[in-house]
Structure formats: C-alpha cells, structure tokens
Computed example of a mutant assay.
Amino acid sequence: MQSAVTVLGLGPMGRCLARAFLDAGLSVTVWNRTPGRDRELVERGAFGAASADGAVAASPLTVICVVNYDASDAVLRTEPVTRALKGRTLVNLSADTPGRARDTGDWAERHGIRYLDGAIMTPTTTIGTPASVYIHSGPEDLYAEHRAVLEALGGTHTHLGEDVGRAAAYDIALLDVFWTAMAGYAHAVAIARAEGISARELAPFAQGIATILPPLFEEMAAEFDDGGFSGEGNPLTSGLSTMTHVVHASQEHGIDAGVMRAIEATARRTVELGHGTDGYIRVAEVLGRRA
C-alpha cells in the first residue's frame, strides 16, 4: 500500500479524514485555504503545506473535501494546482450534483489527472470507525489501485461504477430521503407541541413509524422497477385522505403546512391521472414524466 496521502480542505470533515489517515500510519500532508486550521494535525504528525500545489506534489493521492464543487474548483482549477495534479490521482469527496461530478471528471481527463468521485454518507463522528460509509465512482482499476488507502478511513467502501457521476447520484437521492424525513419529523414535532405533546413523548412512537419504512422501501423498489404499482391494502386514495388530515390539523394551529401540501398536491395529481388504486410509489413514476 502507498504510504502518503494529501488532504485538501480542513473543515470538520476534512480534519476527520486527515486524522483517520494519520491514525492508520500514513504520511499525511494537509492544506487549507484559511491558515491555522492544520495546527492540531501538524502536532499529531501531519505535514502542513504552505500552498495547495505544494500539498498535491507531496503525495501520489490527493483527497479533497470541501463544501461543494464551487469551492473545490476554486482550489483545483488554478494553474499551479492543475499542473501539480497531472499524472496523480484526485479523489473528490466534496458534495454536489452528478452533473458537477461529471464536469469535474471531464476537466480532470483533459488535464491528465486521474480522477475518482465519491461521497461520505455518515457524520464526522463516524470517520475512522466501522460505522462510516463511503461511496465511490470512476475507473474501477483506479479505485482498486487506491482502495487500501481509502479503506484506512474505516467503515465500508463501495465502488458504484465507472460513470464518475454515479456516487453523486446516490448521494443526492439519499439526501433526498434524509432531508424530507427530517422535515417531516420537524413538522410532526410542531403539530405535537400544539396539541400538548412533548417531543420526548412523541419520539418513541416516531421511532416505531421509522421501523416500518425499511421493508416498505424494499417492497416499493421492487414494485417501481417491475412496474407493478400494486395498491392492494393501501391504495393512493386512502393515503391522500390522511395527508389532507395533516394539512387540516396544521391549519387549525396556524402551522405552516407547505411541505405536506406539496406532498398532497403530487398525490392528488397522481390520482387525477387515474392511478388512485395504485400504491404510493406510483407518485415517483408521475414525478419522472416529462411534460
């Protein structure tokens, strides 16, 4: 296994990545646009580079993790850094859209940079532990070459395919699940409080609802991929009625029901298109239709 890696970007996640590499015994070079953030890492044995291109030149593999691709472009697409990256491998663990990932892949290819895209699917506290989850996409042979170093970060690593935008596509889809669920929970807490129920009182029951979801995800995935859309036992018309209840209860307490109104409107449109006896996952098919 190669013994050196560079980390660009020392925000909360970048610092955790660098620590994990250090803990695994690798030679780690770090750089951050804002000076001073490398102090703790340098004290632990990392090399603090004075410039981004100097950091890149120190290792065959560079990992960048910043807030988005605007931020990573500002670092990578400067002449000194682009030149230093030529012939080396860049792994971008910043978060952005699949289109931005593919654009960066095209840029890397034009400049002779070996490129892998990826995403971190778990919080900073999991980095370096078995609980962390990473997804990667890009050339499979390149991933295989650097897999041992990446696995020094701990947890599970999955290569999702040669399409460099595929990891970002998974990331966006899974963030969609996460944030809509978080929005639903926040709205539920608001309604519960208006009815005199504390968040702590609601939480165990909310957790019970959450345990229903994993088998439903699997069942609905099969229905969607197979085109079955069975609504036996819970047709969309029944679900639509309960969505309306949530909207009405929100209105009674003056609580913003914008999120549920959007969900209700999409379900109603699906029913109006003649799919009222189908299961809820039919909504995904309707959402994906091009006008």
Rank of each mutant, 00 (worst) to 15 (best):
E223V: 03
E218T: 15
L150F: 10
L116P: 13
G154H: 09
E264D: 10
S137Y: 11
L160T: 14
I212T: 14
Y134F: 15
G11R: 02
A169F: 06
G208C: 05
L202H: 01
V259Q: 04
E195R: 01
V283P: 05
S137T: 09
H111S: 09
A221R: 11
R193G: 03
R289A: 13
G279P: 03
A206E: 06
S198A: 06
P35R: 07
D226C: 01
T125N: 13
R83D: 08
D23H: 15
E162Y: 07
A284E: 01
S59C: 13
L93M: 03
T62Q: 06
G48N: 04
T82A: 14
L216C: 08
V42H: 04
R268K: 05
T62C: 07
H159I: 14
V177M: 14
T244R: 12
A148Q: 15
R114F: 13
T180W: 12
Q207G: 06
L93E: 01
L236A: 05
T156N: 08
S3D: 12
G11N: 00
V177H: 12
V81C: 06
F224I: 05
A131F: 10
H146A: 10
T62W: 10
E252D: 12
E151Y: 09
I197Q: 00
A49M: 11
G196K: 03
P214C: 00
D226K: 09
A221G: 10
M1D: 07
N234S: 14
S3L: 02
Q207M: 09
L160M: 14
P12G: 07
V56D: 10
R15L: 13
P35M: 02
G184N: 10
T129G: 11
V286C: 05
